[in-house]
């Protein structure tokens, strides 16, 4: 499905900013925790990599575009856990 993530060839995102990178693997502790959570949940078979990618792509476009990289991961993990009944609302 053509969704917001499918950006190859699109224009309007401006130039690349190589200097923004500070060589840190994670820019906050919570990013590292989200990374580890995603890995653990995949290993446990809670969801697979393609389900995770699909969930990221299902984030509403305006939210996807506004979110940072690991915010998208967090939104997707929460979405999958809710859908699989492992995370009740609240």
């Amino acid at each position: 499905m053509s969704r917001v993530h499918d950006v190859g060839g699109q224009t309007g995102f401006g130039p690349v900013s190589p200097d923004l990178d500070d060589n840190q693997p994670f820019h906050a502790d919570w990013e590292a925790r989200v990374f580890a959570l995603n890995t653990a949940l995949r290993r446990r078979g809670v969801f697979n990599l393609d389900e995770m990618r699909d969930a990221i792509e299902r984030i509403p476009p305006e939210q996807y575009l506004a979110a940072s990289y690991y915010e998208r991961w967090l939104l997707a993990v929460e979405m999958l856990l809710r859908e699989k009944g492992l995370l009740a609302d609240g």
Partner: peptide, 13 residues
Amino acid sequence: PSWYKSLAYRSRV
């Protein structure tokens, strides 16, 4: 790196 994951790099390269 952050730029590798950026929309600018992914869309334009």
